[in-house]
Design a protein around this nucleic acid. Structure first.
Ligand SMILES: [Mn+2]
Ligand SMILES: [Mn+2]
Ligand SMILES: [Mn+2]
Ligand SMILES: [Mn+2]
Lengths: 227, 227
DNA sequence: AAAAAAATTTAGGTGAGTCTAAAAATTTGA
DNA sequence: TCAAATTTTTAGACTCACCTAAATTTTTTT
């Protein structure tokens, strides 16, 4: 439906494309391929091409046929707005409503498209202007500035060092539930006791209390900060 | 987009039709006309007919050509679910985020379509299982039961009686802002001092404090309860 | 009981977002 | 370097929710 006589909103679908382009583009803003977007949006390459033409028309992306795609600064602003909303709602769901960090992503996928700016700003204030979401991801402020944090992966920590658990690089419910079961939570202290030379698995003491085994597959996905 | 291999959800649009049919149908569940729905959905009668055929196909409404439309019990359940979500989100926006009662309807129109049942139930619990929304409208419980309340209109109250202000029958921002300016809020006490025989306007004392003039146009839209 | 008016449905189309199949451009690599 | 493989775009079609115009049914009025 088009709303007569007013500037057309960006649709749910367009917002998703922008967000996914942003995420696939990474911190350096690299070009994103049509196929990568087809994968990310769970559609086919032909559908992506159609949408790219529309987004380019609206000056939300830089697009030249066969050359891949990059956000314009207008597109980047919009993507960051959607990401801001996603992450703020995740904080709400976990901190206020008591959901687990493994349960909130899909709900936030819907809430992130609720349009009101005043709602976002009031939600942000109510939550106490959080800097990071329940997965440790940074929350852009209203102007699109990301809080910086230079985390390293647990797999990069050497024997004897103590770190704080600050975030995850994989958001699937199964991964997060695995962490729950092994007792690794955001903010916990971890001391790397021993790193196995062969498979890079680590023996870790969590909160000076529980000793546990962490495979490299897992430790590569844990973001930590030196104490 | 159709989601392959799973039971299809009801769309945003379908949910709006059900909600509007419910509201136009009134407490007795009367038949609703195509034109009334066209007005309510801000579309044309021909579009309504298309959608009615689809809703009937899904067993959400009883529909016979030219005969108007009524919700089935399945449709009624769904409508009440949407209304429950709308009103709970309005409570959240006013009580938790501090919005005015004149600001929340449009935002709730969007939030009411967020699908998760677990979200609704947790929100309800967080808000303390409220029975009424910021406009005094009853909030159905998870099973669809409406809290009952037999309110009367302020225009029906006789001289000398004291009442509590419990709800409004008109939800437009301009009406609600008018009440704000005159100092009438949900829950305030009102004593009807005098009713003008000619135009039925009333002299009312609010919270034993401010005396003000209420036209019948307004007093017919205020729901109150005898003290 | 017709005729006129009003309400509703049908017929035929549109744009958004998707699809498959086929064509074209780019990249890989023998 | 040039043929094969891969990626991307084009062509043509579908569904959903909407539209206008025309036909049909119901209701109201004479
Ligand atoms: Mn998420
Ligand atoms: Mn997150
Ligand atoms: Mn409302
Ligand atoms: Mn309300």
């Amino acid at each position: 439906m088009t709303i007569a006589g007013c500037v057309m909103q960006n649709s749910f679908t367009e917002e998703n494309y922008l967000k996914i382009i942003h995420n696939l583009s990474g911190p350096e803003g690299a070009d994103v391929s049509t196929n990568a977007l087809a994968e990310g949006t769970a559609t086919r390459a032909a559908s992506v091409t159609d949408m790219l033409r529309k987004l380019a028309e609206k000056d939300l992306i830089h697009y030249k046929k066969y050359q891949g795609v990059r956000l314009t600064s207008k597109g980047e602003k919009l993507a960051l707005k959607v990401i801001r909303k996603h992450r703020l709602w995740e904080v709400f769901l976990v901190d206020i409503l008591g959901f687990g960090w493994d349960e909130v992503h899909d709900i936030a996928e819907e809430l992130e498209h609720i349009p009101s700016d005043r709602l976002v700003e009031r939600l942000d204030a109510f939550l106490g202007n959080p800097q990071f979401d329940p997965h440790g991801d940074p929350i852009p402020d209203a102007k699109g500035n990301m809080p910086t944090a230079n985390y390293l992966k647990l797999s990069e920590v050497i024997e004897g060092e103590k770190v704080l658990m600050m975030g995850v690089l994989e958001h699937s419910p199964t991964f997060l539930q695995h962490l729950d079961r092994t007792g690794i939570t955001l903010g916990c202290e971890m001391e790397v006791r021993e790193v196995n030379q062969y498979d890079k698995s680590a023996l870790v003491v969590v909160d000076r209390d529980k000793t546990l085994f962490v495979s490299q597959e897992v430790s590569k996905k844990l973001l930590v900060q030196r104490l």
